[in-house]
């Protein structure tokens, strides 16, 4: 496979890889490094890549595994706190500020979800994958995905409503 051909295959979903990496690793820099690593790995495998029926699914699985490994490794553990640049969450009078504020709230709520629910929510609600695609990516049964997704969504809702009520009160 030539370089241009490779890029044509990979470029459409490289953002998805990055977003998945960022969802798991939280920090932008870490996610960028991870994405670069994955793309390089794909490139070194470019000769055999034609054999995979679904390169995107393969790459997503690779990213997931790679990032989870990173998380487990000590190296990432040391960096963990460096990047959590939390914003000030005081309720502002300006509507706009409030909106972007509550958006970052959702992000934080997602960060706190269990690993699996986080992944399912990311793949479904951000990337809009179908259930059977997610099943392939995460090696889970569709029913299990449904349960995890429902739990994740409900948790986000619960915490949002909580926050909303505090905001008013």
């Amino acid at each position: 496979m030539q370089q241009t051909e490779f890029l044509n295959v990979v470029l459409p979903f490289k953002d998805k890889l990055f977003r998945l990496a960022k969802r798991i690793l939280v920090s932008r820099e870490e996610a960028e490094d991870a994405t670069q690593e994955i793309l390089l790995k794909l490139w070194t495998k470019n000769k055999t890549m034609g054999n995979y029926t679904n390169v995107e699914a393969y790459a997503m699985t690779m990213t997931k595994n790679f990032c989870l490994d990173r998380l487990k490794s000590k190296q990432a553990g040391n960096l963990k706190l460096v990047h959590s640049n939390y914003e000030d969450n005081r309720t502002s009078l300006q509507e706009e500020v409030e909106v972007s504020d509550s958006l970052s709230w959702v992000e934080k709520i997602m960060e706190e979800l269990p690993e699996q629910q986080k992944l399912v929510l990311q793949l479904r609600d951000v990337e809009q994958y179908e259930f059977d695609e997610i099943a392939l990516l995460l090696d889970m049964k569709p029913t299990a995905i449904r349960v995890a997704l429902s739990r994740a969504r409900k948790t986000v809702r619960e915490k949002l409503v909580q926050k909303h009520n505090y905001g008013i009160g």
């Binding site: 953002d15 890889l17 990055f18 960028e32 994405t35 958006l103 951000v126 990337e127």
Partner: peptide, 19 residues
């Protein structure tokens, strides 16, 4: 915010060069 966040999150791009 939940749905708005999902839409916004999808806009994030990998801006580094592919080496």
């Amino acid at each position: 915010p939940m749905f708005q966040y999902f839409s916004e999150a999808k806009e994030e791009r990998y801006t580094k060069q592919v080496p």
